[in-house]
Design a protein around this nucleic acid. Structure first.
Lengths: 255, 255
DNA sequence: GGAATTTCTATGTCTAGACTTATTCTGGTT
DNA sequence: AACCAGAATAAGTCTAGACATAGAAATTCC
C-alpha cells in the first residue's frame, strides 16, 4: 500500500500534493495551504516545499501567484514533450542497418514562404538539400532541408554530399531557439518515389527550424515513412518494428 | 550588444553558459568548470549555479554526473514540448464560434487492441463515444473516445450526450500519467464524412491515453481537419485561421 | 597483473534565514 | 461609488553552510 521508492524529499512532497489533487482532496480551483504551512506539515524547509510546488506548477497542475497563493489549476493545460534524437542512432538502436543518401544539393534563393518562416530577407541564397534516411534498406525518412551558411560558417568547408547534415548540425551547431510542428500530408509523386510508397499515402510530416545568435541555421521538412508514429515517453517509437500499425502494449506502473 | 532583460541570477548564469556553448568556447564533450569555480566567477552561491546548470541539463545541453563533473552534451537529444489545451478554448481564442456534437455513444467491450494499449483486461466494458468539435460550423476535430467509468466513478452520473467529455475530464479527472502519439492516416469514409472532406485526405491523428491510480481513464483518437498543424511555442496554432497551409511568419526575438 | 578496498571529489539535496517583488487587501479621500 | 496610498502577504530568489551519494581515482592486497 505504501508507495515506496524513496526519492528526494521535494519529490516526495510533490507526489503527496499530486495525490491529494488526484484524489479530490484538493479540487480544481481550490487554494492549497501556503508554503510555510506545508513546510511545517512536511517538516521541511520552505525552499524545499517551494521546489516541490514549482515542479507541479511546471507540470501545469498548480497555478501560483504571489500573494494570491497556490491553487489547483482549473484547466490544466498539459504539456507533452517529445524528444528528437539523431536519426542514425534511432535506427541503430532498433537493431537495423542505417544508411543515408543525398538526393539533391544545390544553392538557390529561398522561396518567400521559407524566408518568412525563418525570418530571412527574401531571395537570400541558401543551400538546399534533399536526403533519405534508410533503415535496413527501407526508406525511413525523407528530409528537405534549407541550410544557412551564414549562421554556421564552419559548414562552408564541409562536403555536404558526403555528410549527414542532420548529424553534423546536431553535433556542431547548437541552437538557441527551435520550433517544431507536425502535420499530415498526402504524399506527392516525389515523396512517394523517394519513400517507395504510393502517391496519396498519408505521411506524418515534421517541420523544424533552428536559430542561433547569427540567425536561422536550418529549416527542414521531414516526411516519415507511412504509418510512422511519434510518441512521448522518451523517444520516437518508430514504425521501425516491422511497420505495424499501433503496437505498443504497455504496463501500468506506480510512480 | 549586452543582452538586457534582467531576469533571475540563475537564469543569467544559465544564459551565459549557454552562450559559451553556442559560441564554441566550450565544445561538445568538454568538461566545464565545476560549480564551485563558477560560483566564484559569477559571484553567486553554489546552489544558484547548481540551479542554473540543472536548467541547462534539463534542456539537454549539459550532461552532469557526480564526481565526473559537467560536460557539454555530445548528442544533444532535444526535447520539444507541446501544450494541449481544451478544444473549446482553442477555438474561441481564435475568435470563432465553438460547437460540439456527439455522434454516437454506447457501452461496449473493448477491442483487444485498445485493451492492450491502456493495460486493461480483454473484453472489459467501456463507454465509447464519437464526437465532433466545430469551429464556425466547420468540423475542426473528430474524437473517438473510450471511457473507463471505473476510474472515474463521478462520470457515471453524468449525461454524456449533453456533455463535452474532453472538457469534463480535463476539469474533473486529473491524471497521473499520460501518453501521446502523433501519426498520419488517410481519412476513411467515416472520417471523411464527419470531417466533411474526401476519403484519402491525409489527417493528422493524435492518440492520447491517460491514467490515474484507479487505472486507465480514457483513450482517444483525435483526427484533425485536413491541413491542421500542431506546433510548439505554447499552443496548437491550428489551421483555424482560414485553412491556410503553412502560414506563420514569425519574428526572431531575443530571449 | 588483476581484484577489492579506500579515498576523495563534484554533484545532489536540504536548511534556516534574509531579502525582493507582485498582488491583494484595506482604509481613507474625494 | 470611484480612486488612490499604504500595509500585508505569499511566492520568488538568493545565500552560506551542511551532509549525502555516486563514482572516478588511487591504493592495497592477493
Amino acid at each position: 500500500m505504501a508507495a515506496g521508492t524513496a526519492s528526494s524529499k521535494a519529490q516526495t512532497i510533490a507526489d503527496e500534493v499530486r495525490r491529494r489533487i488526484v484524489e479530490g482532496q484538493w479540487r480544481q480551483g481550490d487554494r492549497i495551504p501556503d508554503e510555510a504551512d506545508l513546510a511545517i506539515e512536511f517538516d521541511a524547509a520552505r525552499a524545499t516545499v517551494n521546489k516541490a510546488l514549482q515542479l507541479l506548477a511546471n507540470d501545469g497542475l498548480l497555478d501560483r501567484r504571489r500573494k494570491a497563493g497556490t491553487r489547483v489549476t482549473v484547466d490544466p493545460v498539459r504539456k507533452a514533450s517529445f524528444t528528437i534524437s539523431i536519426v542514425r542512432e534511432q535506427v541503430e538502436q532498433a537493431g537495423m542497418a542505417y544508411s543515408y543518401r543525398v538526393v539533391a544539393q544545390r544553392e538557390s534563393p529561398v522561396p518567400d514562404e521559407i524566408a518568412a518562416r525563418v525570418g530571412l530577407a527574401q531571395g537570400e541564397v541558401l543551400v538546399r538539400m534533399r536526403a533519405i534516411h534508410y533503415a535496413d534498406g527501407q526508406p525511413f525518412q525523407l528530409e528537405d532541408r534549407w541550410l544557412n551558411l551564414h549562421a554556421t560558417p564552419a559548414l562552408a568547408g564541409v562536403d555536404l554530399r558526403q555528410l549527414n547534415a542532420n548529424e553534423w548540425l546536431v553535433r556542431n551547431a547548437p541552437y538557441l531557439r527551435a520550433e517544431m510542428a507536425f502535420s499530415a500530408e498526402n504524399a506527392d509523386y516525389r515523396d512517394a518515389r523517394l519513400l517507395e510508397t504510393r502517391p496519396g499515402r498519408a505521411l506524418l510530416v515534421l517541420y523544424r527550424s533552428t536559430w542561433n545568435d547569427l540567425g536561422p541555421i536550418t529549416t527542414v521538412r521531414v516526411a516519415f515513412q507511412p504509418g510512422h508514429i511519434v510518441g512521448t515517453e522518451g523517444n520516437f517509437w518508430s514504425g521501425l518494428h516491422h511497420r505495424s500499425r499501433m503496437p505498443r502494449a504497455n504496463a501500468r506502473q506506480s510512480p
